[in-house]
Design a protein around this nucleic acid. Structure first.
Length: 378
DNA sequence: AAAACGGGGTC
DNA sequence: GACCCAGTTTT
């Protein structure tokens, strides 16, 4: 009986739910922030970011009034920075269009940037007590097992089936808690590896458990290995105390964040060939290399990286090497040091900052940039 | 349907 | 090293 399972889920949730900060509020804006932060990110990772973010931006109006730079600064280290930019834009839209109130209408929420089917349903059910289903990774696993959905995750028919099942289950009292119970079960009991079926409130109605298929479900989607990319990054210092030249790209990797100048190169740099600084100093090469196969290597690449963004500097020596793995790229980066006269002034996408400023909480850089600075400046 | 988009925990 | 996490947008 679906009603029995539903009641069992809610009772289990009441007894076992974790005390998470966003479970202490019904503020749709705060719920929204938590849902965006939790996308593809573990709850334990999110908690400190959530506290800092809500402390600085307690209301939609205050977030809407902030600069994107500051918003990204508070997001720095969390990853998937586009989430922060879309949340910022979405909240601005809510302030401009809906008087600062997150819309109770599902269709209106779905129209907001960064709000997809999952987030719309989470806000709707948790903040507005609406019978809106959600399917995240946890719910997908729970439902795929319970109902023996054996088609691969991500396939259209699979998604359709899972959303149907979630839609049936959410109907009834406490839809928000029901949705959270499904997620909580997936996160703490119906886990990918070593699920604790003994402690599952719906074990009796689980098809996979009855069939001995728990470990075989769900069928994961194929995962591609990150593409290997070689690059050269340049830490160009200027003045005393030394500041480091930083650039910011709108659409590049780490869009909106500050980074050091970098270019993709064709091949790994042979460190044996990276000798002491030569007399060729002030290179300003204008050739941009669209295809990495045509890209320069080593010192030439360092010149190119600086020239591309208008920083005039004398390239010194290779100062380190950094690897950084993302979900879709595996970056292998030679880090070069350079000493700059100065950069172009007046460009919004170029600035210099001290090591301390960049390292401070609230500065909008990726982990990669921090690694690169560590490699170059010790 | 596939790729882009971060970073980290866990087995 | 593989897998996957309270996903959405773009191609």
């Amino acid at each position: 009986m679906a009603a029995d399972a539903r009641a069992a889920l809610l009772a289990w949730y009441d007894a076992h739910k974790r005390d998470l900060p966003w479970r202490r509020t019904r503020d749709p804006y705060a719920i929204w922030v938590s849902e965006i932060m939790c996308q593809q990110t573990r709850v334990d990772t999110v908690i400190p970011y959530y506290h800092r973010f809500l402390e600085r931006f307690p209301t939609a109006a205050e977030l809407a009034a902030a600069s994107e730079d500051e918003v990204l600064g508070l997001w720095s280290g969390l990853g998937y920075y586009r989430r922060a930019r879309l949340l910022h834009r979405g909240v601005k839209e809510v302030v401009a269009t809906y008087g600062g109130k997150v819309p109770a209408e599902r269709e209106a929420r779905l129209g907001l940037p960064g709000v997809g089917k999952y987030t719309a349903g989470a806000i709707g059910s948790i903040a507005f007590d609406a019978e809106e289903p959600i399917v995240d990774g946890n719910v997908a696993r729970v439902l795929a097992r319970r109902h023996r959905v054996a088609t691969p995750l991500g396939a259209k028919e699979t998604e359709k089936r899972l959303w149907e099942l979630a839609g049936e289950l959410v109907k009834g009292p406490r839809p928000g808690d029901l949705n959270q119970a499904l997620m909580e079960l997936g996160a703490t009991v119906c886990t990918p590896k070593n699920p604790r079926c003994e402690g599952c409130p719906v074990q009796a109605s689980c098809g996979a458990h009855a069939a001995g298929e728990v470990d075989a479900l769900p069928v994961p989607k194929k995962r591609k290995k990150p593409k290997l990319v070689h690059a050269v990054a340049v830490v160009a210092t200027v003045g005393t105390p030394a500041k480091v030249w930083l650039v910011r790209g709108e659409r590049a990797l780490f869009g909106g964040l500050w980074s050091v100048p970098m270019v993709e190169t064709a091949a790994p740099q042979l460190s044996l060939l990276a000798g002491p600084a030569s007399a060729r100093g002030e290179g300003v090469r204008s050739d941009a290399h669209a295809d990495p196969k045509d890209a320069p290597a080593g010192r030439d690449a360092a010149f190119a990286a600086l020239a591309n963004v208008g920083v005039k500097a004398r390239v010194k020596e290779k100062a380190g090497y950094v690897e950084h793995v993302l979900s879709h790229r595996h970056l292998k980066i030679d880090v070069w040091r350079a000493v700059a006269a100065r950069g172009r002034d007046g460009l919004a996408e170029l600035r210099a900052a001290t090591r301390e400023e960049v390292g401070a909480r609230g500065f909008g850089v990726s982990r990669l940039t921090k690694k690169i600075l560590d490699a170059a400046l010790g």
